[in-house]
Design a protein around this nucleic acid. Sequence first.
DNA 1: AAGGCGGATGTAAGCGCTTACAGCACCCGG
DNA 2: CCGGGTGCTGTAAGCGCTTACATCCGCCTT
Lengths: 365, 365
Amino acid sequence: MAAAGEQDGRPTTTPSAAPAASANGTTIYSVAELAGVSIATVSRVLQGAGTVSSKTTEKVLAAVDELNYVPLGAARSLAVRQHEAHGLVLPELSGPYYSELLMGFESRAADLGQSVTLMLTDGKADLARAVRQLATRVDGIAVFGSAAMPPPVARALHGQKPVVMITGEPQDGVESVGAENAHSAEELTEHVLAHGRTRLVFVGDPDIAPDIHERHAGFVAAHRARRVQPAEPVRVPFREGEGEAVAERILAGEIEADAVVCANDELALSIMSRLQDAGREVPGDVAVVGWDDVMASRYVRPGMTTVRQPVRELGVLAADRLHHRVQGGEPLAERQVLPTQVIIRGSCGCPSPRSTPPPTERRTR
Amino acid sequence: MAAAGEQDGRPTTTPSAAPAASANGTTIYSVAELAGVSIATVSRVLQGAGTVSSKTTEKVLAAVDELNYVPLGAARSLAVRQHEAHGLVLPELSGPYYSELLMGFESRAADLGQSVTLMLTDGKADLARAVRQLATRVDGIAVFGSAAMPPPVARALHGQKPVVMITGEPQDGVESVGAENAHSAEELTEHVLAHGRTRLVFVGDPDIAPDIHERHAGFVAAHRARRVQPAEPVRVPFREGEGEAVAERILAGEIEADAVVCANDELALSIMSRLQDAGREVPGDVAVVGWDDVMASRYVRPGMTTVRQPVRELGVLAADRLHHRVQGGEPLAERQVLPTQVIIRGSCGCPSPRSTPPPTERRTR
DNA sequence: AAGGCGGATGTAAGCGCTTACAGCACCCGG
DNA sequence: CCGGGTGCTGTAAGCGCTTACATCCGCCTT
């Protein structure tokens, strides 16, 4: 009995025939019809909600299988008023930094049952439009601080969707997560200073992003503690080629330094490489240290002394916080800060250890 | 006049009051009401479709702005029967390979007006479920071949949504894109052979993925061409630690080789590093070559001889093809193959060039 | 035996948007 | 002065799903 004798297949008020359906034409109606039940029951089976007899459940599942039914996410989203998706906005993906972040984010988001919609800002002509468009399809957005969130965009989102900034300054209503910078930068700088180096230069632009700013602040603080005057930072953007250029300036004597403290490993690596090619000894003539602990830093000779950030955890944290917000939770006023770790290898002047294990075995979960 | 005197704000048949609305409560109805027009007009303005007087357009835009209106993507998707999103399934993201791919994919997808929903398979407990879930919210899916698409999943998707495989064997109805492997592997191997090396070993598992298989085939072909018997491949998974292990076996004399041809750079890099630490000369005692041209390969000494794949272009191509399919286009029967390039540096035995420029300036679009 | 209860299922009202179609005002030529 | 464009706007019917509520039925309680 039940609704076995359904003569329409679409027992709603709608006068029209069965809906045109998704890609292949199967909708919840087709499934219901085939299983001889109502669409409500199909939905209940699929959502695991409500009570459905095991016999009915079987019938429905069989029908789903036979028709190869894939529900239309948009319809569900509309009905439940949730996208069940988190947005992530990153500048780009070269280098391990953003990838790690993304992996952590995706992993946690998946655990929370959220899909992740990614947007890269580099090369986007109309950023504001892109973010707006993204906002249209997600419940909340995590944004990587530096430059990924121009004011107009921030304004557009204001109060619309939960936003969490990664590595950005916390603002009213948008919370922020990040890694520690100032202390480890100070520690690293002090370490170099302790090697007896006296003319350190900081390479990277402190104004490019708050975290670089903090790194530079640590650099300055270490100098202050020893009552020595820090040199002016060499302001260059994060681009591999820039390292070469800086190295040339050092070789030419234009920049006088016996140690260079770089804002990231890419810069440090390219500087060290160029210096070595030109016959300079590292760390003999000049020490070089970086930031991020990218893979290459373990393989170059001497090993690159650098700072490891818990980038993946940052991604996890961001996903967590975002989800919290999406669930209606209140934003945290203070910034969440994860600890970093100074990794000593040979490029700072220390005797090179044989090798440093990777942070975590690759390809682990 | 127009509908200025609208008394309800929701001129549909629905008896209820104004809808509860999205996150912040603004829907197309609120906008219409504020602007004093119908929701159809608001939609037209926002979609740029149909004809709307400039006066009305202004009013609507003003209302949108004032209310900070963000349309609900799900509702639009439901109405237009398109998700306007591409799914991308990758194993993970460590190393530059997948990141590049993803960047290419995202960039092209964005150009095509599609958002990208990313899913990483590594560490996912219920892959089939995850993919099914993904299928629910996108118009088509691009899958990275190796292992990312277990048969049950493939079956689930079969005929449901367009699928394009990246680096996988083309199958019925699912097209495939990839980079050239066999020829460049042969060329690379022949190059090493031409250096006078006689005992080459291939490190990596040819059965792990079709592309590795092809690489190995090229390795074998080069031997054949010289009528020499290739050694059995050293089958190891792609994990950084594995390189160390292989290096130990070489050091122990367990593997006898004067050249090792690795399935990727990570492996090559870690082998070379361990060998050098143990006092072996590279390329003097043993040559090492890799595949992928990761960043580290440019910075190590000697530079790593390797093969550069147009990974980003692969991502672009995948997005393109997927979009083509989503638009109703027919799948291409033959595999699309992009050319690769052998990069000679010092680790194969050649005199080290000073430095090799990165493939493209970083951070470019 | 009647009433009530609860499990299983169906009914139908939306979710917020797009769009075919209808309607209306205005302008032009005849 | 009227018919028919033409240009703009409104009406309303869905898109496929979830879910509150109604319904039905069998069985237990009294």
